[in-house]
Computed example of a mutant assay.
Amino acid sequence: MRNRPVHVLVAAAILALIVLAVALSPWITPYPPAAQDLTARLSPASGAHWLGTDHLGRDTLSRLLEGGRFSLTIAALATVLTGVIGTAIGVASARRRGWLDEFFTRTNDVFLALPEMVLALFLVAMMGSGYPSLLLALTVTGWTPFARLARAMAYDVSARGFIEAARVVGCTPRFIVLRHILPHLAGPMLAQATLRFGQLLISVGALSYLGLGVQPPQSDWGSMLAAAQPFALRSPLTILAPGLAIFAVALCVTLIGQHLARRTGSPVMPAAPAREAQNA
């Protein structure tokens, strides 16, 4: 507690509360998220509807909680997949070196040269909207920061004396990677994953806003923003609620990620690995 800033503790508490509410949404939503009541359309906040209703009379709070399940789940899955794939590519590139390192480095540079959101939009548009295509697009476009960080740190760790000592005593390359290199990468990669989660959540919201996420009658925070936009002046809560939810979660995980990066001394997505490490 003493080493954790107050704003990080507040961010962690807010994030935990949001995640808990979303996880319990099937049991705590006051109304069925897709239930329509045209007589109560665009109702303001009240005791019956805490955040009002949308243009079809659906309860905004119920749809916000249900939509959070999709938004947070797809962002979390994309973070895990990109983290695992990027770390594996970065470590393999640093350990094998030679043509494999050159191939992965040039491939990484190509992906970094392309706007991530534009590439994801193109992939989802090609494969069609929906849960699987959105997850695949985010995974294909999001592994590069993890790969660059893992490669740079694996180069650094591989140049240390205890790695040479492990080779001398006969440790296999697989044992060296699992026992010595990956544990040194765990903290920095966790910090990177926390920061990337916020970015991926915003990407999910943006793609869903464009109609490439879940399809009606299901909801997520991005599609709620798009549906509420024409009625923003008549019913501000319908657009403020999902927008603030995305902002709050992204801000909280970013603050936590920055704190983890400082604690682990992790460079976040370094521009390039150190020349000394490459020549070691």
Rank of each mutant, 00 (worst) to 15 (best):
N108D: 08
L15A: 09
H259M: 03
R69N: 07
A277G: 12
F162R: 14
A120T: 08
G170K: 07
V124K: 09
L190M: 15
A241V: 15
R58C: 00
V19K: 05
A113N: 06
G265D: 11
P26Q: 00
F247G: 08
L251H: 09
Q218I: 10
N3I: 14
A206R: 10
W221V: 06
P236T: 00
G67Y: 11
P236Q: 04
L185P: 01
V80D: 01
V91R: 06
A147T: 08
A45M: 03
A78Q: 13
R262G: 00
W143F: 00
G68M: 01
R97M: 01
L123Q: 05
L9N: 03
G52V: 00
H259Q: 05
Q258R: 11
G67C: 03
Y131V: 10
P242N: 05
T29P: 06
A154K: 03
F104N: 05
A272S: 10
F146W: 00
V157D: 03
A261I: 01
I256S: 05
S129F: 10
F122Y: 15
D54P: 00
L64T: 04
A232D: 11
L195I: 09
P173Y: 15
R58E: 08
W27C: 04
P267S: 12
L244E: 10
F231G: 00
L210M: 15
R275F: 13
T264F: 11
F70S: 10
I163M: 14
A245E: 04
A191E: 04
Q192G: 12
H7D: 04
L114Q: 05
P5A: 01
V22G: 01
R196C: 10
L260H: 11
I74Q: 07
A274I: 11
T82L: 15
A154R: 03
P267V: 09
V6L: 11
H180T: 01
R234F: 05
A206Y: 07
S43E: 06
R262H: 04
Q258I: 08
